[in-house]
Amino acid sequence: MIDQQVLDRAATLAEMAPDDSVTAAVLSGREAHFSTATPLAEPPVTYLEDAEAPAYVLTNAKRGIGRGSKRNTVSSDGERRTVILVTGRRTLCLIGGESADEVIEVPHDAVAKAEYSTGFRGHRIALRTPRQQYHLWIHRKTEEPLLEATTEFIGDHRPDDPETLADDEASRVMYRGRPVNLDAEASQSGDSETEDNETAASDSDHTIMYRGKPVDDNS
């Protein structure tokens, strides 16, 4: 049963939002875009601060969020989803877990460049900071104008001189309740742009990789 306060706040924020990608159903955790499945262990709206409101909401099914290299990916558990909330001050990535969600935060103050790409099996928004790159996988049914508007919004809110995020700040990747410390050098990955349209391999393989080795899901 979803708390009435959660439902009320989700409805209010959806009504205030400048874009219809922000829905009460997604914010309250009742369903994800393009799916009736419960996206997260906790309602997405509960991760927002009191005065914070999302301007755009994006989701994906299983691809999760990549940090540094596209293959260093944190993916959702079971039937959970990934929900991306873009607010006036940050991009908040919530990767669904069975008992607890994984959280990756990228403040707009730390973004040096924001761009998007489209692909047959899925789309992607790439956020580059001075030391890192984040790969936000987006559901393939998402329309390109929404990707463009979201990327432009982030770009409009980023500074000319972006901040460098410390490894122990909220941008860290949490895996099953523990921080995963990825080398900063991973941000200089030589991934070519031809990978933007990756299909079968990257869409079907959801193994979480850490420094080129799979992380044991059962640990």
Rank of each mutant, 00 (worst) to 15 (best):
G97A: 06
D217M: 03
A55N: 12
R176K: 15
H135W: 15
R90D: 10
D203P: 03
L85F: 05
A51P: 00
L182E: 06
Y175G: 02
Y47V: 02
A41N: 12
S35D: 10
I84E: 05
D161A: 13
A201K: 12
R67F: 03
E15C: 07
D168Y: 05
P54F: 03
L92D: 04
P179W: 06
Q188D: 14
Q5N: 15
K141D: 14
K70E: 13
I2M: 09
T36R: 13
D167N: 10
E105M: 02
D161G: 03
T73C: 08
R71M: 13
A100E: 14
D203K: 10
T150E: 05
A114F: 01
V111M: 01
N181I: 09
D160W: 05
D19E: 01
K62W: 07
R67V: 15
D3E: 15
R178N: 13
D3V: 06
V180W: 06
Y47W: 12
A110G: 06
Y175T: 02
I208C: 11
H33D: 04
G119M: 00
L40P: 05
P162M: 08
R63F: 04
G88F: 05
Q4W: 02
E148R: 14
R158F: 01
Q188P: 00
K113E: 15
E152V: 02
R30I: 05
G177D: 11
A17V: 02
D20I: 05
L165P: 02
A100K: 09
S192F: 04
D109A: 15
L40H: 01
L147K: 06
R158M: 14
V22E: 02
E98A: 09
E105Q: 10
M1A: 14
L182F: 14
P145M: 03
E98W: 01
H33I: 08
T194C: 06
D203G: 09
P159E: 08
A186T: 11
I65A: 10
G29D: 07
S204N: 15
A126F: 01
P214S: 12
R89T: 15
D191T: 14
L182H: 05
T73H: 05
V26Q: 08
S204I: 11
T12W: 05
R131W: 04
G122R: 09
G97C: 01
I125N: 08
M1N: 10
K213S: 12
P44Y: 06
P107L: 07
A100R: 12
P44Q: 08
T129M: 08
I125R: 03
E31A: 10
D3M: 03
I104P: 01
K62G: 09
A17I: 02
